[in-house]
Simulated assay, not measured.
Amino acid sequence: MTKPLGVILAGGLATRMGGGDKGLLHIGGHSLLSRVIDRLSPQVAGVALNANGDPDRFADLGLPVVADSIEGFAGPLAGVLAGLDWAAEQGAEAIVTAAADTPFFPTDLVERLVAASAGQAYPLVLATTPRTGEELKSGGRSRVNRHPTFGLWPVALRDDLRAALTDGLRKVVLWTDAHGGREALFDADPFDPFFNVNTPEDLARAERFLT
């Protein structure tokens, strides 16, 4: 498999942060988005940003900006589809997605997602981390947390995904499970590397993780 392209998902509404672009918030003197770009770029063959609205607000990043093609806010799968359409134009086989508000994801993310896809007809893998004891007590059978914004996605299934979104599908794992999606397990010590910034409290916590 050739090195996949990277797509940073920044199309969320950020309602718990009062709206706007969470990725442009700063920790340690740098924006969350710039930290995600710096972490993802060495792992992939090229990077695009999935974002809606005026793309000029990201002009200083020097990245292609691809918007959702599905009407309304259709969630992260719409961003995945936008990334897959962009990757198809580049002649790529697959993309790896990362969230714009998750600055600590693993530096071997892509390598391990690709390794987990070995033997698949279509490379489709989500990142996971072990659930904590408290999370296990709260119910549910799964012993892992799946991180649906961090995954390896095949360009070959983009039209299938488009049809599913048009029919109203919004839950990522329903689509990945339907297509034999796999999981790649990452360590969560000393904290979950897929921790994302949703609230002002999370932003303060991310600052502490830097120290």
Rank of each mutant, 00 (worst) to 15 (best):
L32M: 10
N198M: 13
V197A: 06
L136R: 15
P200H: 01
L157S: 00
D159Y: 06
A94R: 09
A100Q: 06
P55I: 02
A14L: 06
A184T: 05
F209T: 08
E134R: 14
A204D: 14
D167V: 07
L84A: 12
P148K: 03
R143N: 12
T15G: 07
D202H: 15
N50P: 00
Q90A: 15
E201C: 02
A206H: 09
G29Y: 09
A98N: 00
F105S: 01
S34V: 04
A94Y: 04
R182I: 00
E183G: 01
A10P: 08
N50M: 06
L32W: 07
L9G: 09
P190L: 09
I37H: 04
A74H: 00
T199I: 04
T107C: 03
L5M: 12
R146A: 03
A98F: 00
I27T: 15
G23H: 10
A74E: 03
A100G: 12
A82F: 10
G180A: 10
H26K: 13
G28W: 09
A206K: 04
V36C: 14
V65C: 10
E183S: 10
I27Y: 12
D177T: 06
G20W: 08
G91K: 11
P130F: 02
V125G: 01
F105A: 04
N198F: 05
P55W: 04
E93P: 00
L113V: 06
A88W: 09
R57H: 12
G12P: 01
R182W: 04
G181F: 06
A10C: 14
L25M: 12
F150Q: 05
R170N: 08
V44N: 05
T166L: 04
E135H: 02
D101P: 03
A67Y: 00
L113C: 11
P130L: 11
L77H: 00
Q43Y: 13
G19D: 06
T15W: 05
T176H: 01
L152A: 06
L5P: 00
A163G: 01
G75S: 05
V66I: 15
P148T: 10
G12F: 11
A48Q: 14
D202Y: 03
H30D: 14
P76G: 02
V36L: 05
R146W: 04
F150T: 07
L136P: 07
G6D: 12
L40H: 09
P4S: 10
P103E: 06
F191S: 05
H30Y: 05
A48W: 11
D38R: 13
H26M: 13
R16S: 11
P193E: 08
V172E: 07
T199Y: 01
A206T: 10
P123E: 07
P193Q: 11
A121D: 12
P4A: 02
